[in-house]
Every structure is written in C-alpha cells, then in structure tokens.
Amino acid sequence: MANGTITQLRRGVLGPCVLALLARRPRYGLELARELEAAGELLTSQGTLYPLLGRLHDAGLVTSRWELGDTDRPRRYYEISAAGRRELAEFQREWAAFAGAVTAVAGPPSEGES
C-alpha cells in the first residue's frame, strides 16, 4: 500500500513542482526531468512528464515555444503563464497547512507517545 500511496502523492504534487521550476525560469522538457529526478522522489519516469506538460499547456498554465540551442536540434521551452503563477501561489498557500496536518496525524509519534 505504501508504494501506491507515494505514487498518488507524487501525481498530486508533480504539477505544482513543475510550475515552481518554471516560475524561476523557462526550461525545456529534459532539463525539467533532470531537475525533478535530482530532487529525488518526484519523478519516476520521464514518460510521465511530457503528458503532464501537455495537460498544463492545455489548461493554460504554461506556454511553450521552439528554440534552437547550442545544437542544431530545436528544443521546446516551457514557461509559466499568469494563470500558472496564480495556480502555483494558491498551491503554495495551501501546502504548508496541508503538509502540517498530514504530519500531525500520520507523522512519527512525538516523544512520550507510543
């Protein structure tokens, strides 16, 4: 059950984490994947990132553009939109309270508790 629970949690926070990275600066897909993988526990497969980026784009939370980089191969860069910034701000406001409530109920016992 724990593995399924973590998978569900990951699905719920991956979108806001992508928005948070894009709020710092535009990125291309593989760059996002590498940063999420480096953070640990957020991305289990690059195959989950690209459909998510498509859904964020369709929802108007990110925009994208093709650019030629250092290579001759174009890269699709994603950038957070104004709606994405609002969505991220709402998530950030609610996250601390939510995480605190989960920790209070499901976290390890405090000293003296068994």
Results as ranks from 00 to 15, higher is better:
Q8P: 01
Q8H: 09
Q8T: 15
Q8N: 08
L9C: 13
L9R: 05
L9M: 13
L9T: 11
L9I: 14
R10M: 12
R10H: 11
R10D: 02
R10F: 13
R10C: 04
R11I: 13
G12S: 05
G12K: 06
G12N: 08
L14H: 02
L14V: 12
L14G: 03
G15Y: 09
G15Q: 10
G15E: 09
G15V: 05
G15S: 09
G15N: 08
G15L: 03
P16N: 08
P16Q: 00
P16H: 07
P16A: 05
P16Y: 07
P16E: 03
C17D: 08
C17K: 15
C17G: 01
V18C: 05
V18W: 09
V18S: 01
V18Q: 03
L19E: 06
L19S: 05
L19D: 00
A20M: 04
A20H: 11
A20Y: 12
A20K: 06
A20N: 04
L21I: 11
L21Y: 14
L21T: 00
L21Q: 05
L22V: 00
L22E: 01
L22H: 03
L22K: 02
L22P: 02
A23W: 10
A23E: 13
A23T: 01
A23Q: 12
R25M: 10
R25A: 12
R25T: 02
R25Q: 14
R25K: 09
P26S: 07
P26W: 09
P26G: 00
R27L: 15
R27K: 14
R27C: 04
Y28L: 06
Y28V: 07
G29R: 11
G29K: 08
L30R: 15
L30D: 09
L30C: 01
L30Y: 06
L30T: 10
E31L: 12
E31S: 11
E31K: 13
E31W: 14
E31M: 15
L32E: 01
L32A: 04
L32K: 03
A33N: 08
A33C: 11
A33T: 01
A33F: 05
A33Y: 06
A33K: 04
A33Q: 06
R34E: 14
R34N: 11
E35K: 00
E35R: 05
E35F: 07
E35L: 15
E35Q: 14
L36V: 09
L36W: 07
E37T: 13
E37K: 14
A38F: 07
A38G: 02
A38E: 10
A39Y: 10
A39N: 00
A39Q: 07
G40S: 02
G40W: 04
G40Y: 13
G40P: 00
E41V: 10
E41M: 15
E41P: 00
L42I: 12
L42A: 08
L43P: 02
L43Q: 01
L43I: 09
T44V: 13
T44Y: 08
T44I: 14
T44W: 12
S45F: 08
S45N: 08
S45P: 00
S45T: 11
Q46G: 15
Q46W: 12
Q46F: 08
Q46Y: 13
Q46A: 10
Q46L: 11
Q46M: 14
G47E: 03
T48R: 12
T48W: 10
T48Y: 15
T48F: 12
L49P: 00
L49Q: 01
L49Y: 06
L49F: 06
L49R: 01
Y50F: 15
Y50V: 05
Y50H: 08
Y50I: 10
Y50K: 07
